[in-house]
């Protein structure tokens, strides 16, 4: 075989391997470990509107995970079912109304600055229907933060002496003690993958509270897949 042909074959093989690795890494960084949930969209005067309901739980339970004692986010589907999926497909330039049920206790924020709601409409959240521009960082249980969009919302924890604490998910807003937070934000006009995360060191049993579910997509981290 001529040297030129050999070189060409080697170059082709290297290129093919590179492309395969590129696809693998690309897929890994956008959808790792969690299928994307296509959030239902309604149209109001030609403008896309999304109602997003999720809950945060101290222990996800064996029905939803092989790691039953991991803290997690769950999203409510249109059928009313709670699913452990944290990669959400959303339309671009949409209004997203969030209802957040938190069933977990307080862990406290490492950076108190993140207890100030930012990036949502009015830079405030509704806690039990009451507008709030700050929460006590020491009582924060979790945050929903999309750093690239400047969105940070922290939720207070359920008091330790609550009457009906939820042991394992899925928890019921009608039965278990919880904190309800509501806020509204707009998705960007530019499509893209916007990661979101919790900033509270809430992973029990992990070093500095930031291992396990804090480092795994599908629990306390995810993506907003904003699509045109």
């Amino acid at each position: 075989m001529r040297v030129g042909v050999k070189l060409l074959l080697v170059a082709a093989a290297v290129t093919a391997v590179g492309v395969i690795i590129g696809f693998y890494v690309s897929n890994l960084t956008t959808l790792a470990g969690s299928p994307a949930y296509d959030v239902p969209v309604s149209m109001h005067n030609g403008h896309p509107v999304v109602d997003l309901e999720f809950q945060t739980v101290a222990a996800v339970g064996s029905k939803l995970s092989q790691n039953p004692d991991w803290v997690s986010y769950l999203i409510r589907t249109t059928g009313g079912e709670w699913k452990r999926e944290t990669v959400w497909d959303l339309p671009a330039n949409a209004t997203v109304h969030v209802t957040w049920f938190n069933f977990d206790g307080a862990s406290g924020l490492r950076n108190p600055y993140l207890a100030r709601p930012q990036g949502m409409v009015g830079n405030r959240i509704l806690v039990y229907g009451k507008p709030v521009t700050r929460i006590d960082p020491n009582l924060a249980s979790h945050t929903f933060a999309v750093p690239a969009l400047g969105i940070i919302a922290a939720v207070p924890g359920v008091p330790d002496d609550a009457k009906h604490p939820c042991g394992f998910a899925p928890c019921s807003p009608g039965k278990n003690s919880h904190v309800t937070v509501k806020f509204t934000f707009h998705t960007p006009k530019t499509p893209g993958h916007y990661r979101w995360q919790c900033f509270v060191p809430c992973a029990a049993g992990w070093i500095f509270g930031f291992g396990g579910p804090m480092q795994t997509i599908g629990y306390m981290d995810g993506f907003l897949n904003v699509k045109a």
Partner: peptide
């Protein structure tokens, strides 16, 4: 809130910080 003592959940300005709180860690 930030200016409260560290053991009260604050983080007043300092030139370095430690990984607090470690309540559930």
């Amino acid at each position: 809130y930030v200016n409260r003592p560290t053991d009260k959940g604050g983080a007043p300005f300092a030139y370095s910080y430690l990984p607090e709180p470690t309540r559930r860690a």
